[in-house]
């Protein structure tokens, strides 16, 4: 049995924010313009590059990515999928302010289910908005309130996708 360190990572967010696109870009380095709604859940894995922790220890994670269907309201089913998670990427669509408000509710549910585990806020579709957009400000404010890192990503243009997952890996390694 390989001794690699596996971590369960939940990818959460409102429907259509680009969760599956981020996972597909990260795992397979591909992007599909056509929107296909995720039904239920899809699990895939990605071996991260080795990470050096604050204690100068080298760790390597195999991320088991649970790409969970999007919803406006967190159902008991979705909350059950979060059980045992080691971290989460909580995704909002920077073109839709409502998805940022929903992200706040998702964080609350996630913290109840997997308390003390880290999460990263990803503002996706960064390529579609102006740098000075109010929506970015709204997400950054949420990050400050929740004390969580915010990364502005674009699955389409492959911006900050790997960085978001690496950041999560670093937080897990130091938690």
């Amino acid at each position: 049995m390989n001794s690699m360190n596996q971590k369960k990572i939940c990818i959460l967010g409102m429907f259509g924010v680009g969760k599956t696109s981020l996972v597909e870009r990260f795992v397979y380095n591909k992007f599909d313009d056509e929107y296909k709604s995720t039904i239920g859940i899809k699990v895939c894995q990605k071996l991260l590059s080795p990470i050096e922790t604050d204690q100068h220890k080298i760790v390597q994670f195999n991320f088991l990515l649970w790409d969970i269907e999007g919803a406006e309201v967190i159902t008991p089913q979705i909350q059950n999928y979060m059980i045992g998670a080691h971290g989460a990427l909580i995704v909002s669509d920077l073109t839709r302010p409502d998805s940022i408000s929903v992200a706040n509710n998702i964080v609350e549910a996630y913290q109840q289910t997997a308390p003390g585990t880290p999460f990263v806020l990803a503002g996706n579709k960064f390529d579609l908005i102006a740098a000075e957009s109010e929506n970015i400000q709204q997400l950054e404010e949420l990050g400050e309130t929740l004390k969580a890192p915010v990364l502005l990503t674009s699955a389409k243009e492959n911006n900050n996708v790997e960085a978001a997952f690496e950041k999560l890996g670093l937080l897990i390694a130091s938690s």
Partner: peptide
């Protein structure tokens, strides 16, 4: 086969998701 060569990690995850569902 090793679990890596047999997709055992993904199957384990999906099986858990189905079970939970």
């Amino acid at each position: 086969l090793s679990p890596e060569n047999d997709d055992a990690h993904i199957i384990g995850g999906m099986l858990t998701a189905i079970k939970s569902f």
